[in-house]
Design a protein around this nucleic acid. Structure first.
Lengths: 348, 348
DNA sequence: GAGGTCATTGTGAGCGCTAACAATTCCCGT
DNA sequence: ACGGGAATTGTTAGCGCTCACAATGACCTC
């Protein structure tokens, strides 16, 4: 392997071979205009020949730019965070930045603080925090860092610059869709209370019902996992025939658990109970039945977050607002066939 | 915000405040033993007071160690890659390394090469490549970089140091389980042919059947997506009653599609057809019916990969072999209730 | 009390690069 | 042929840190 060589060549080495000064090499590499074509070619040949690559540390030291961004996230194996992460990295790379990630198992003040330290040690110029728990956001506000931080998925009610999908709107779309299909009321299986997104979805659901003059039932609670959805689903099954005909579940994974519990209890979806999820994970379309859900545009979240962070790093006034909200979108599938309040209608 | 200040303090600034030389500050930070306690305390106070942090670029320049690793991956929103990524980052962080990731949409020679360049620009000391496509591995062998590269999920037949889950064994477990349950033969829905993992699973499936004296049916092909599984499932449904009683599907997502197609065709799982998947994604347990599948230990993959890469970076002889294979594990669920070749037995 | 050892602290050099400025060369009009 | 400006190239000085070594001082031994 080539990396066994003791010292990689330096700019001076290249310069010597090309018969120029190291500065001319630097100019060629930096696409500086005032270099003769012939010189440029000679330098380029020398670079090629030696397999030279600029030392990024030396460069960063003098330019004071590492061109590295950090991301702190948790639950990165879930569809939402993983998608956001992907979009963030792609957007950053387009702008010429490298992204260093820290994936936490749990998001607490300690782990967050350690993560920021770790990233700082990696020389990041700024950090995106995927911090959906409210406790984490508060911690973030405390932990003043020597670089700017943009929060994602924290809701708009925080002091920190943030980018969010409009969760309330998503919940309104879901709940409104069910009401419009003829359901008298809509139950809700919520996410953990310390997740801002979960709270916002509850808010949107509740507001929609209240505006329709319906008293919202007590929401159930889960932890986003299919298992918790399954447990809640068993409970919900007990309310069928007593006013329960539609459920808005706070994410698709829990909805999957709900669907299984209903099925096992002999409750048909959507004929007996309609179900709506949230996220539109790739599997949702193939659930039994295919799930109506709310799709979030993670690519846009990624782009906007990076744009905002770079504005902050460059000291520019943010090109948009520093509290971005992105619109989600309803995806209608078989789990919410238009509801007709008499039993016994067969689906296609 | 604090990061608006023009220049962060340097070691010399701290030294001045503490009344020592910059070298003493460096010693305190480096936990060098020969510093008087009182001096150490004074320095630490000064560091605190100024909010000083070492400049990582300057440090990296002189130590020639960036303590940064790179990861190239594609399809990072899928469960497998996302889990591996998570495990890699955690393992690297434990060893004091920062991880920079590049997530590609498609893995080709060009994108791979660009990714490695991008990471190199970020100053990585080594790279892990999650390169499951065979074409990518070949490209990797060509693209000699000035740093070591460890491949993950490429299969053991490559020149590059690599870490893998034993896919053949996984396929044997799945196929053997079906045969042991009384099925005469086992059909297979394979992944894309240019994925080494897909090929290995086909091999393991075929070998198991042949050892049992069974002529393997022609395998179907999919692209890992639920949709491709759905299409294949429709085709498979046509073979029910003509010798098809069991299917080994190369991943859980496709298995989900197969389950839906069978259900829609009026084929019952597992009474008419048993289905086994691969991956054990969190949703599998809640499919209709819960899916028997093969679990891969991504945490171990991550740890072993990082260990191997660090050995290579440090120039140590790898502590284990440089072609690691990790054992997967069968998880039995309701989609493969012990098969009895007469129809009509109801499940629990 | 001279000499030696050890712990502690300081000094100087240089990692590889870019930015600022200085020097040289080239080309043009006159 | 010659001055002047632009184009091209070179020189120098750090960026902030760690390493090697020098200097200082405290303490001990005989």
């Amino acid at each position: 392997m080539n990396h066994t060589q003791l010292r990689p060549p330096t700019m001076a080495d290249v310069a010597r071979l090309a018969g120029v000064s190291h500065q001319t090499v630097s100019r060629v590499l930096g696409d500086h205009p005032n270099v003769r074509d012939e010189t440029r070619a000679r330098v380029q040949r020398a670079i090629e020949e030696m397999g030279y690559r600029r030392n990024s540390s030396a460069r960063a030291l003098v330019t004071r730019r590492t061109r590295t961004l950090g991301v702190v996230a948790s639950n990165t194996t879930l569809y939402g965070p993983a998608s956001t992460l992907f979009a963030l990295e792609e957007a950053a790379r387009t702008e010429g930045y490298v992204v260093s990630t820290v994936s936490l198992r749990r998001l607490t003040v300690e782990t967050l603080s350690e993560a920021l330290d770790h990233l700082s040690q990696g020389g990041v110029e700024g950090v995106i925090a995927l911090a959906p728990q409210r406790s984490a956001v508060e911690a973030l506000a405390e932990l003043r860092q020597p670089f700017p931080v943009v929060a994602v998925g924290t809701g708009t009610g925080v002091e920190i610059p943030s980018v969010n999908v409009d969760q309330r709107l998503g919940a309104r779309l879901a709940t409104g869709h069910l009401l419009a299909s003829g359901h008298r009321t809509v139950w809700h299986l919520a996410g953990p209370e310390d997740w801002q997104e979960a709270v916002d979805r509850v808010d949107g659901w509740r507001a929609t019902l209240e505006e329709a003059g319906v008293e919202p039932p007590l929401p159930l609670g889960g932890d986003w996992s299919p298992l918790s959805g399954y447990r809640a689903g068993q409970e919900l099954a007990g309310w069928v025939g007593r006013g329960l005909t539609a459920v808005f579940v706070a994410n698709d994974q829990m909805a999957l658990g709900v669907l299984r519990a209903l099925r096992e209890a002999g409750v048909r979806t959507p004929q007996d109970v309609a179900v709506v999820g949230f996220d539109d994970i790739p599997e949702s379309e193939f659930f039994a039945p295919p799930l109506t859900t709310v799709r979030q545009d993670f690519a846009t979240v990624g782009k906007r977050s990076i744009a905002l962070l770079l504005d902050l790093i460059e000291g520019r006034p943010p090109s948009g607002t520093s509290r971005v909200a992105i619109e989600p979108q309803l995806v209608v599938r078989a789990s919410t066939f238009p509801y007709v309040p008499q039993p016994g209608n067969a689906p296609g």
